[in-house]
Write a protein that binds this DNA or RNA. Structure first.
Length: 555
RNA sequence: GGACCCGUAGCCUAGCAUGGAUAAGGCGGCAGCCUCCUAAGCUGCAGAUCGCGGGUUCAAAUCCCGCCGGGUCCGCCA
């Protein structure tokens, strides 16, 4: 609804309706700073100009209640009809509230894509959570979205893992990704000081790329084992990919050869020592990019280019979520695609999650696994739920699970992707304020009121905008912004904006909750507030779903 | 050495794209609030020269330049 109000404001502003100068502030529902900009150009006073602009307005909007000019700001306020329509739309549309029809397009979101050589750690899940949340938000906007995990099955570290797997076997009693990483870490230590093993790794990689049966069988076995464990972890976080795309597929299906041919046709390649190299100086880079070694094998970037050619043929838009260590290669990839007259991917880079003692490393076994984190957060949540006496054991563990997953997902998604994070156990295990538990709790409170209303035989809802007090008005304005925030995430690829919005909405609901009784007031006021409570319940629930967090009804 | 990202109260963050009306939350600290819809909640107090220095502007946390601190990248690795 806020989107409608906003476009009404732009319409009323007419020639002055420049989106860049619209602001949401504490002083008004929307204000325009256009007068300041024009004042500069025309050498006049902003306040004078603002007055003049306002005087030209034809006041014919269904949603705008008041327009005023204050010190150069042009302030717009919604009217009661807007509030009423907002609440009614929420109650009508229910789980669909917040959706809208964005431009029809097929979007691919690639995220997580961690090397299948061990368990996901807390750095990887930052990627998963950003990617999965974006996918959910894109879907809410009516976009046809698919998510893919790009499986890096051709890497050196996988070859090492394969040799380790063959040599030491794996412990079948352990979670498969955990068992795999033990073989990897152990083997890696041996490879580091053995030229013979180094040769063996190289040969295995060559044979896998050539598609030799024994190698394919071995790689597939190892990679699938790791992926099995990884998928299980992701599922615990409410993350599920639509597809797993193996890098080797592009070597086998001809896309690698096709992309090389395209590079040749564009005269972007040069040959040195029998190796094929993209001349990156022309694209403004210092170093060139090798796409084929002199032994004829391809490199990571070659297959990634092939993957993006494939994306071009199947999707209108592709978003990759990548760690900031991929910044250079990611930008090179974008520029190469553009030079080929192909669509480049949009990339969300996120900064690293480090431990207080330094950065993580799978290879050295120095990491906090996602599983360990989930387990510990669950235990902590369970401790708190145990205090409740009115819940069954089953309810308690379901609540603890929902709170744990929510706490994790929220902690990661609320931070802007470009901020480096240092992992802190005490913060990860804290469920007060600014955590998803706060939002879930607000939702549970709303559910509780509605349950009581039904039980006492007074479930009728009827929103009356003229009864709105300041807190209620503020709350409805926040509720109206749902799809507007979804749209902003779409434009900026910053899911933290939505996380913040939902927290603010929950906070406004709690503010209302503690100040005003709902069930113990006269019928008219009760029905009015009950409508508002139901609307909040819907918005909080829909919002939590967008964040991949379960909206539990009791906690 | 070069490139990119981050630097906002003791701590964690929002705001920076598109410069404007008192820099917004939370944690921790202090003082309060449950005979009343779930206290995983609410209220109040204390706490910030927005890393430092310059510049642009009527106006800078926001834009530009320089510096400092932290991170990342610069392989015929992935």
């Amino acid at each position: 609804m806020f989107r409608k109000f906003r476009s009404e404001v732009l319409r009323i502003l007419g020639n002055y309706g420049d989106e860049r100068f619209l602001r949401e502030t504490a002083h008004a529902d929307i204000c325009s700073t256009i007068a300041f900009k024009l004042a500069k150009k025309e050498g006049r006073k902003p306040s004078e100009l603002a007055n003049e602009i306002v005087s030209t307005f034809k006041f014919d909007s269904d949603y705008i209640g008041k327009i005023e000019s204050v010190n150069g700001y042009i302030n717009f306020y919604t009217n009661q009809e807007f509030l009423e329509e907002t609440v009614n739309a929420i109650l009508d549309e229910d789980e669909n509230y917040g959706s809208f029809d964005a431009e029809k397009q097929r979007v691919l979101i690639e995220h997580t894509s961690a090397n299948p050589d061990g368990p996901l750690h807390i750095g990887h899940i930052r990627n998963s959570i950003i990617g999965d949340t974006l996918a959910r938000i894109f879907r809410k906007a009516g976009i046809d979205v698919r998510t893919q995990y790009y499986v890096n099955d051709m890497g050196r570290q996988i070859a090492i893992t394969c040799i380790g797997y063959k040599k030491f076997g794996v412990d079948r009693n352990k979670k498969p990704d955990r068992a795999i990483v033990e073989a990897y870490i152990k083997m890696n230590r041996e490879v580091e000081n053995s030229a013979n093993l180094e040769k063996e790794v190289e040969k295995l990689m060559l044979d896998y790329e050539a598609g030799k049966d024994y190698a394919v069988k071995l790689f597939e076995e190892v990679v699938n084992l790791a992926l099995e464990g990884i998928k299980e972890t992701l599922l615990r976080l409410n993350v599920k990919h639509d597809e797993y795309v193996w890098e080797s597929m592009f070597v086998r299906n001809g896309y690698v050869e096709r992309i090389i041919k395209m590079l040749e046709e564009r005269e972007m390649l040069k040959e040195e020592d029998g190796a094929l190299i993209i001349d990156m100086k022309k694209l403004g880079y210092e170093k060139d990019v090798v796409v084929k070694r002199k032994n004829g094998t391809t490199l990571y970037v070659t297959r990634d280019l092939a993957y993006h050619l494939w994306k071009n043929e199947n999707y209108d838009k592709f978003v990759n979520v990548l760690g900031s260590d991929h910044k250079l290669i990611g930008r090179q990839l974008q520029d190469i695609m553009t030079a080929l007259r192909l669509k480049p991917p949009e990339i969300v880079f996120f900064e690293f999650v480090s431990l207080p003692e330094g950065s993580m490393s799978t290879r050295r076994g120095k990491f906090v696994s996602a599983d360990e984190l989930i387990d510990r957060v669950y235990e902590e949540a369970k401790k708190i739920v145990e205090k409740r006496e009115d819940l069954t054991e089953k309810e308690k563990s379901e609540i603890a699970r929902a709170v744990a997953v929510g706490a994790l997902r929220y902690d990661f998604v609320r931070i802007a992707p470009e901020k480096p994070m240092t992992f802190d156990w005490s913060k990860a295990l804290d469920f007060e304020r600014q955590s998803s538990a706060y939002i879930q709790y607000s939702h549970a409170r709303a559910c509780s009121i509605l349950r009581k209303a039904v039980r006492s035989g007074k479930p009728e809802v009827e929103f009356s905008p003229e009864l709105c007090n300041a807190e209620e008005r503020k709350l409805v304005m926040l509720l109206s912004k749902f799809s507007w925030i979804v749209e902003r995430v779409l434009r900026t690829l910053r899911p933290n904006i939505f996380a913040e919005y939902l927290m603010e909405t929950a906070s406004a609901f709690n503010d209302f909750y503690t100040k005003y009784p709902v069930l113990k007031v006269d019928a008219e006021l009760r029905m009015h507030r009950l409508a508002l409570v139901d609307a909040c319940r819907i918005v909080l629930r829909n919002g939590l779903n967008l964040l991949g967090i379960d909206a539990i009804e009791k906690m």
